[in-house]
Amino acid sequence: MKKRKLEENIFKALMIISLLGVFAALAGIIMVVAVKGLSSLNLSMIIETPKGGYYLGKEGGIANAIVGSLYLMAGATTLAFIISLPVALALQKEYLSKRFADFTRLVLDILWGTPSIVYGVFGFVIMVYLGMRASLLGGIVVLTLLMVPIMVRAMDEAIRLVPFEMKEMAYALGTTRVETTFAVVLKQAMPGIVTAVILAFGRGIGDAASILFTAGYTDDIPTSLLDPVASLPLAVFFQIGTPVPEVQARAYAAALILLVIVIVINIIARILGWRFARHIVR
């Protein structure tokens, strides 16, 4: 008996240690980025674009990257949403055979797991084929490709949670499939759909590998879809590699901004999930 108790306690202790380790990793990352970032973050960093001699540590900020990231994400999130919502709705069992829907889910899972660098390479090939150079448009398209599987799978999860009895009630009243989809399913699944969009946004904004070749990098804020565009993750990546401490400081600031955006997005998604959940019939 004693031995069994001992085993129990040993494993429980190990579990608590590893859990604390995970929490410590999270706290550590936030601390490191916050301490490093806050000391180098100031107003001119946020509102100024790089000036001459920027990469030697002179004047300027990372406004180009902040605005660039927002442009990229605004375009990519909109496009991905327009593609994802119909796909997620079409995966319901009323429309297609279960086998085809399940096959598509599997394909989406595979796409979801595909490394973002592969998307980047694929996007670059397409752009070379079309004779485009690195641009805002290219970045938006590749980020859309990256975000669609994430968004569809998350939306699909939410839509599948709508009880079938509820749809049956609608059908019993004589509605067609489309009417039920829009009047019942969409309303019921709305919080899940919003959360899906937000989560995909969070994944998209932090991704650097996919836009490395497709969006390029520039010191200016783009004025057209065909201009290259800077982005926060690439700002971190390029500036950490320079030997000048002032430039590295900007990498820390960019990382802090990125981290804050991602954490805020997670919190918003969570709160929305709770708030909407109250209005839903379960």
Partner: peptide
């Protein structure tokens, strides 16, 4: 609560992980 913390950890961009790797 833990699930929330883990979601945040999962959402941290890879460049930030890389940055912490370089620094620590």
């Amino acid at each position: 609560v833990s699930r929330f913390a883990i979601d945040i950890l999962a959402g941290i961009p890879s460049v930030v992980y890389g940055l912490c790797g370089v620094l620590v």
